[in-house]
């Protein structure tokens, strides 16, 4: 799609039939691979397909990026997680940062279909990293774009745009923010003083995705929740983002080892 972000359509009739916005799949590329969660970015019952959009982060996503059309994945489990609660509320603001725009897309579409006014804010580091701009425009009443370096749209963060929107008195019934934890935490900070219900989709490290390992636990309102079954969506104002971020960094050393090994066997990678 853009630099280091890829879209993949996977033939998976049973998953496509059951999928709902807000849910995810867990994939395994081959026998030696990790199981990694990826949000269902789109699905089509007619085509029996599920679309995933992923960013190259480490070994597994880089390896995934090397696959070609017609290749097969060892495992593709889903749909997992609790679907988003899509209802007619009035005005919904969708905030997507980086590859987080992908999971925001099916929700924006669903909120629109449910009769809401959908205002979408998407952001990326730079213009060449923006994804799904046209798709988002098609399902939003208004689309606001921003980039960290000012190469497209507003020069700055999605939170700046959101802040201005709210300060200008726009009546908003719900904000849905999906992106890096640091962005979601910032969005929660912006909406809190306005008392606007805010939903975030959390991305802790997962293994099974069915509630069996507890590795994905997050703290919401002081209570421990398993993001794969109780979420991944939670009330942003109650989430302990520091815990989430610290748990996401647990395997940093091992991830370094994996990626080095991968780049050696792949002749340098990208």
């Amino acid at each position: 799609m853009v630099h280091q972000v890829h879209l993949m359509k996977v033939f998976a009739p049973d998953v496509a039939r059951a999928a709902k916005p807000g849910q995810f799949v867990i994939i395994r590329i081959d026998e030696q691979s990790e199981r990694i969660p990826l949000t269902i970015a789109d699905y089509s019952v007619e085509e029996s397909s599920v679309t995933i959009i992923f960013q190259e982060m480490g070994k597994t996503t880089k390896q995934l990026a090397t696959l070609n059309a017609q290749d097969t994945l060892q495992d593709f489990v889903g749909p997992l997680g609790t679907p988003s609660e899509i209802e007619k509320l009035g005005t919904v603001v969708m905030v997507g940062g980086g590859v987080g725009v992908a999971p925001a897309y099916p929700q924006a579409k669903a909120y629109k279909a449910a009769g809401n006014k959908v205002m979408t804010i998407i952001g990326a580091r730079s213009e060449n990293l923006l994804i799904l701009e046209e798709e988002m425009r098609a399902v939003s009443d208004e689309l606001l774009v921003c980039t960290d370096d000012g190469t497209k749209g507003h020069h700055g963060f999605v939170t700046d745009v959101l802040q201005r929107l709210l300060q200008n008195g726009e009546h908003v019934d719900r904000v849905v923010a999906i992106g890096p934890p640091i962005m979601m935490r910032a969005v929660a900070g912006v909406t809190k003083p306005f008392g606007i219900q805010t939903i975030v989709s959390l991305n802790p490290i997962m293994i099974d995705g069915t509630g069996m390992c507890g590795g994905c636990r997050v703290s919401v309102d002081g209570k421990t929740k398993f993001a794969c079954v109780d979420g991944p969506e939670f009330d942003a104002h109650k989430v302990d983002f520091n815990l989430l971020m610290s748990r996401l960094a647990v395997y940093r050393d091992e991830e370094g080892i994996s990626i080095k090994k991968h780049e050696c066997t792949c002749g340098g990678g990208q």
Binding site: Q32, E34, R35, I207, C213, G214, I257
Partner: peptide, 26 residues
């Protein structure tokens, strides 16, 4: 860790053979 997570990483995902298998464990 829950024992389930620890054992799943080791047995199902073969973390004891990391980095030949990708799943890490502390």
């Amino acid at each position: 860790y829950s024992a389930n997570e620890f054992l799943t990483r080791v047995n199902l995902m073969k973390a004891f053979r990391f980095p030949d298998y990708d799943t890490p464990i502390k």
